[in-house]
């Protein structure tokens, strides 16, 4: 199990590096090397670490552990091919991390990040509609059943295309430098994790690498199906590059616009679900 966790963190951090590289190339910059995020993480681990006096010490440290635990649990759900609904629950639990990190410290920047995290709860709406549509089509939310369905009927990507768009938007809202990344926008320094530095920042970085890998792996698993490890990794890479393209060419939206776009997407998918339920 630990080997999966370490490998997923490693790949996730490498994907973050690729993300930065692709964005830089599109914007006409050379960009950092793709292993930059791995180096960042190691650098932070070797930095002097303490807890700011103005922070709530318990929460400040606990959220780091919670963050690792949440995304480890999500990875385990994928490995054991359990319920997509549990994955949804873990994704929602990630809000605790964003709130906790932001509110635990005394910094106004991270508090702003935490408040924006409440606003960006709208990013869960497309996920809800995506899960609902998948259930309506496959008749199950167990990942192993969804994979079996795809092995027989072909990838869900074509049948449940709106659900794929919804999940894509969910991933986009959690990716760095994305149009919906209002919780870590540059005008509030690094947003909710501004005050986490040293080993805490390094571990958060590793946990977020794990998060990126899990979300992309989920997308490939749910919408492409069982295609073997090499093709799955290729699918994850292509997905990451496509996300980088979107991030490179779109500005960061304001909190109001972010919620509006996410709510409209959910509304459109809800209409599609009603159409499927009533007419199909």
């Amino acid at each position: 199990m630990i080997e999966y966790i370490i490998a997923a963190m490693f790949i996730g951090l490498l994907l973050h590096g690729i993300h930065r590289k692709v964005i830089a190339r599109i914007q006409g910059r050379p960009g950092p090397p793709i292993w930059q995020e791995l180096l960042h993480t190691l650098k932070f681990l070797a930095k002097e670490s303490w807890i700011p006096k103005t922070a709530s010490q318990g929460v400040y440290v606990a959220v780091v552990g919670i963050s690792i635990a949440i995304w480890t649990a999500a990875l385990m759900l994928l490995i054991t091919q359990e319920s997509l609904l549990l994955l949804f629950a873990l994704y929602v639990l990630h809000k605790i991390v964003e709130h906790g990190i932001g509110l635990a410290s005394g910094s106004p920047y991270s508090k702003f990040g935490a408040i924006r995290s409440v606003v960006s709860a709208a990013s869960e709406l497309p996920l809800l509609s995506s899960v609902a549509l998948i259930y309506l089509i496959t008749g199950s939310l167990m990942l192993r059943d969804i994979e079996t369905y795809q092995a027989i009927n072909g990838p869900l990507l074509f049948v449940a295309f709106p659900a794929a768009i919804a999940l894509y938007m969910v991933i986009l809202s959690k990716i760095h430098y994305g149009p919906f990344s209002i919780v870590e926008a540059k005008e509030i320094v690094s947003g909710y994790w501004t005050e986490h530095f040293g080993v805490w920042r390094g571990l958060m970085n590793a946990a977020f690498g794990l998060k990126t890998f899990v979300l992309l792996y989920t997308f490939v698993m749910v919408f492409i199906g069982p295609i073997g490890l090499p093709l799955t990794l290729l699918g994850i890479l292509i997905l990451m590059i496509s996300l980088s393209f979107v991030c490179a060419i779109t500005p960061m939206l304001s909190p109001y616009d972010t919620v509006t776009v996410q709510t409209i997407t959910t509304g459109l998918i809800a209409i599609y679900i009603i159409y499927l339920g009533v007419f199909a």
Binding site: M1, I2, I5, I68, A69, T72, A73, M76
Partner: peptide, 9 residues
């Protein structure tokens, strides 16, 4: 898996 989730952090 559950024990790993607890021990990993």
């Amino acid at each position: 898996a559950v024990l790993s989730i607890i021990l990993a952090p």
